[in-house]
């Protein structure tokens, strides 16, 4: 029994592949946008992102045409992210406020709300077009 049992474990690590998720590029590119343009043009390859788990809860999607305006989703939303629009009897969802619990999906009697796989939602403006669903 070794007095430093972590030492053999560390040596074993050297031979193993890293367990962390890989950076999209093999080496840090000089310009990220330049690298992405190259990827789009097919000149460079990108490490694929980590696969999403099944039933992932991403950005909400809303089908305005089926919505019956029952306001149940407004009642169960923990973050008060859903606003009711009385003129059109539809809802408006603020994605920055949304906590992605998908409770409104469960409660909707006509299933007009769904969670998509989209998760890259960072923006400098809280009220940008991408972050308001209606």
């Amino acid at each position: 029994m070794s007095i430093v049992p972590a030492f053999p474990e560390v040596l074993r690590q050297i031979l193993k592949k890293p367990v962390t998720n890989l950076f999209p590029a093999r080496y840090l590119p000089k310009s990220i946008t330049g690298f992405l343009n190259k990827v789009a043009a097919g000149e460079a390859t990108i490490n694929p992102p980590v696969a999403l788990p099944p039933n992932f809860r991403g950005k909400i999607t809303y089908d305005r045409d089926i919505c019956i305006g029952c306001k149940l989703c407004v009642r169960v939303c923990p973050a008060h992210a859903i606003e009711f629009l009385p003129e059109t009897k539809t809802v408006r969802i603020f994605v920055t406020q949304c906590i992605f619990c998908a409770q409104c999906n469960d409660v909707c009697p006509v299933t007009c709300l769904h969670m998509s796989d989209e998760f890259m939602l960072a923006d400098t403006n809280r009220y940008s077009e991408n972050l308001i669903v209606e």
Partner: peptide, 21 residues
């Protein structure tokens, strides 16, 4: 946990009267 509930943290699985998934 992520595989079962959909999230790594803030699982959102427990509901009053049961579980959601």
């Amino acid at each position: 946990i992520e595989y079962l509930t959909g999230n790594r943290i803030n699982y959102g699985i427990v509901q009053v009267g049961g579980v959601r998934r």
